[in-house]
């Protein structure tokens, strides 16, 4: 507890390039950048595979491989291969690790839509793309959001570990603190990362609430 007070009461931790506001902003930047890139790749791919049913094997394989792949190993490997002169090499693993959860859940969401519903949409004269965008996506939205949330969790965790290979962000307090036996910094940084992760959870819960149709989330009872 005293370590926490030491850390948060130290004015040096609130200003400059190693200050909490800057580190927090860095962490947010990496997380959002990686999440957006991963979503731009994985959501369309998941929709395509789910809608056409072709290439389902990619989904299964990538899901299993992503779970087994050690994040620290991937970070070290890519940084050793590409160097750390820019931030880019460190962002690659973040994106790679965020793709599978989005891809799998988008795919499962589309595949899981009731066949009667799909047939009804075609029966009403909608074309393939319209069925996908107006019927399948809204119904699958809870799972797509779940995928994005799991990806965000994965990115926050990996970005923390990535401080070891010289990425900025909140992980720096933990890694630097360990190196210099500065335990207030380690514990304080850990609290910040945990709070950041929980805040991400809350944002996604809110997004779910706002964007999922009441009929799908069963907040509206159908009589």
């Amino acid at each position: 507890m005293n370590w926490l007070i030491d850390f948060f009461a130290d004015p040096a931790n609130w200003s400059g390039s190693n200050g909490i506001p800057i580190r927090l902003l860095e962490h947010l930047e990496f997380t959002l950048a990686a999440l957006v890139v991963a979503a731009l790749i994985a959501v369309p791919l998941g929709l395509l595979i789910g809608h056409t049913g072709r290439g389902a094997l990619i989904v299964v394989v990538s899901a299993n491989l992503a779970r087994a792949l050690p994040t620290l190993g991937l970070l070290v490997l890519i940084v050793l291969l590409l160097g750390t002169s820019t931030v880019l090499p460190v962002l690659i693993p973040l994106v790679l690790l965020a793709i599978p959860p989005i891809l799998v859940n988008t795919y499962e969401g589309i595949r899981g839509v009731d066949h009667d519903l799909r047939d009804a949409a075609y029966g009403m004269g909608l074309r393939g793309n319209q069925v996908l965008l107006r019927v399948l996506v809204p119904v699958a939205l809870p799972l797509i959001l779940l995928g994005l949330r799991l990806a965000a969790i994965q990115i926050v965790a990996t970005a923390t570990v990535a401080s070891y290979v010289s990425l900025g962000g909140l992980g720096r307090y933990i890694i630097d603190g360990l190196a210099t036996k500065d335990f207030p910094s380690v514990v304080g940084g850990s609290v910040l990362v945990a709070a950041f992760a929980l805040a991400m959870q809350a944002v996604f819960a809110l997004a779910h609430r706002l964007s999922v149709s009441p009929g799908v989330s069963q907040r509206l009872k159908v009589r």
């Binding site: 370590w3 926050v156 923390t160 335990f183 940084g189 850990s190 609290v191």
Partner: peptide, 18 residues
């Protein structure tokens, strides 16, 4: 459980460190 699962592993290791 949902909350715990969202916590990154590295900071959780650190909480146990003391």
């Amino acid at each position: 459980m949902n909350v715990i699962y969202a916590l990154p592993s590295l900071p959780v290791f650190m909480f146990l460190l003391p």
